[in-house]
Amino acid sequence: MIRAERVTMKFGRVAAVNGVSFEVAPGESVALWGSNGAGKTTLVRCLLGILRARGRIEVGGCDARRRGKALRSLVGYVPQELAFHDDTRLGSAMSFFAGIRRVPVSRARELLDQVELDGHERKRVRDLSGGMKQRLALAVALLADPPLIVLDEPTSNLDAAGRAAVMKSLVALKQRGKTILFASHRPDEVASLADRVLVLKRGRLIEDTRPSLLWPSEAGVLTLRLFVDAERESDAAGVLRGAGHLVNLNGHGLCVAVPGDRKAEPIEVLHRSDIRVRDFQVLADYQPDWSRS
């Protein structure tokens, strides 16, 4: 479905994406993993032919450089947050995209039903909640029933309920045989949706692997909150990162992502570095922004 060869995108002297090559087979679900600035978003834009990258990109046999329009007709795209004129009414937006996607208005209605936005046609885009916006974006992406869905951190601005709804839809799409490529920095999403993970770091593809190899756990990934002396928190974060853990240090304290069956590991690591852990807490539902780690 997707073939990328030595894709490089430079802005000035900085290479946002640098020599990335990979392939995605039809029906496969692939995650792009990496911190902010790793090049996920740029890579997605290159794949859509919005940015003209060096190297070679083919989607469904369409070259991104020469047949960008045809390529994009094979792709449904869901952005991080739906950006559409705030004054536009939902129905009007939907019929506009139906025109662009060359599908009848009845199809647009059908999709609004599917994402449970029916009855909201007169609402303006600015009045939609984050979750509704993402459901609208999903509906737009699915208008023409494209074989490939590309999502750029689709849940990062959503609350837990919104996240769950979007993930549920995506899993259903995967089951229907859609190819899915999505950028994410949430291990739980990657683990539940992706067959493969492409790990990006500073624009380079450093690993092409499976979620289970990245986080070899059947028990899923949990967030562990560690309580250490305040003045040693940043040292602790450094030590944990050095040991390969995902760390988030914010107002809520020091959080570490841990596989469900090895929750004690960070505590041991800190212990070896003479950092005393006073207490810990397992946050099953809480996923901080790991990308800032």
Binding site: A70, R72, S73, P79, F97, I100
Partner: peptide, 8 residues
């Protein structure tokens, strides 16, 4: 960006 991600 969103508009350009469409087949146009």
């Amino acid at each position: 960006l969103y508009l350009l991600a469409q087949p146009v």
